[in-house]
Design a protein around this nucleic acid. Structure first.
Lengths: 225, 225
DNA sequence: TTAGTGCTCAAACGTATGTTTCAAACAGAC
DNA sequence: GTCTGTTTGAAACATACGTTTGAGCACTAA
């Protein structure tokens, strides 16, 4: 059993268990028994549980951010100085994600869920790690969004980006469960790719909504449309 | 120190700590020391940590779901048989949330964050508890959404409701931090009410997006708009 | 062979957790 | 004032956690 075997088995098991149960609720003993390796192997190969969490993210995020930078380069080159549109920018992001090599049948949904957890769970060290390692492509994406929505005020854009992030992180992080529920309720099969294909128009349309907010009308004042 | 005092202090401390750190990462010792009560008080008054979590949700959710049912009654009465519009339905929900009596200055954002965590963190017992106790008003809201968007297929509506839930839960659960960041970056003050006022048009517009999905065009095929 | 290296293994360590115990303090009724 | 049921307090309980240890194994190089 070569080293890489043990390391990869730990990473595979950890990735899956973290996605299922969160970080704090997943013990090293669960990981090592699922991976069929000794408990001490985690601390030997990674040093600590925190470092293992970082390694799980790095294994996916490092090649992904490289792919993304290339895709942004191509997009900007194709546009020859004109700023890419909102739809183009969103599609480049989702396509890059979809095209990442998938380790198993669960594919990208596991990692989407991990990214969602990274936002939700406190885990201060994780957020710091992600910002330091992958802040650049994220900032570039934000810049493209800004160029693609010049009609929005900075405040409008700020909030709507949060809304987009929320819809994406929340849905993708539960994509497995949501796909199952849809199958049970309506007998319809779905895939992460299809979710993305439905999500992008929803987001793009929300971003284009009239930029002046309508202040809450009391229900009493509202007329039937 | 009467019983209610201890019970409420535990609930207050638990609510805040759970919202900050999640359920698994918050120990009973943190809660009891923040509440200035004895460690055993939690198991005496609530029976277990799980039951405490349920009680935290019930304290907010029980009066809220009653308020919501009343508001839905009023809305339907006002519409006299016609189905309420999407905007009306969304506004009734947000207004009901905004009008809940707020225990402290952090107000509703703490509870939004808890609801988000309830979705995200595994905690199977919590999801079961929430479905059993508060499934009815939730189902009624879903029914209103269905009536308000007859043009959508069941599958489209299903996914877009998830997107709306995500954008709402994600944004509201971090509303404090997001308001602070906005103040730092742009020097703009905001409130939870204002977030809601910006969120509803975004969601409504997203729901109205063209119902046929556009399948992912390759970046190479995309033309500059 | 011998020494050294990389890795695995079972066992233990120290710490933190949720929960239980039981005596002491308290409250209100008689 | 005394009794009774309720609530608090300090301490202990059993368990699970992340981490460390040191012996043992397989393999390479000198």
């Amino acid at each position: 059993m070569a080293q890489s075997d043990t390391v990869d088995r730990i990473l595979d098991a950890a990735e899956e268990l973290f996605a299922e149960r969160g970080f704090a609720e997943t013990s090293l003993r669960m990981i090592t028994s699922k991976a069929n390796v000794n408990l001490a192997a985690v601390n030997y190969h990674f040093g600590s549980k925190k470092a293992l969490i970082h390694a799980v993210f790095a294994r996916f995020l490092t090649p992904f951010s490289a792919t993304l930078e290339t895709a942004f380069d191509e997009l900007e080159h194709k546009c020859q100085g004109n700023p890419p549109t909102l739809n183009q920018t969103l599609w480049v992001l989702t396509e890059s994600a979809m095209r990442m090599p998938q380790r198993n049948e669960k594919g990208i949904s596991i990692f989407m869920r991990l990214l969602g957890l990274a936002y939700t769970q406190s885990q201060g060290h994780l957020r710091k790690f992600l910002e330091q390692e992958y802040g650049q492509p994220f900032g570039r994406f934000m810049g493209l969004l800004k160029e693609a929505t010049p009609e929005l005020s900075a405040v409008d854009r700020y909030w709507r980006i949060q809304f987009m992030l929320g819809a994406t992180a929340f849905t993708m992080s539960s994509s497995d469960a949501l796909i199952d529920i849809l199958d049970n309720k309506l007998g319809v099969q779905a895939s992460v790719q299809e979710i993305a294909a439905r999500l992008v128009p929803f987001l793009a349309e929300g971003m284009k909504a009239p930029d002046k907010i309508q202040l809450p009308p009391s229900v009493a004042d509202t007329t039937v449309a």
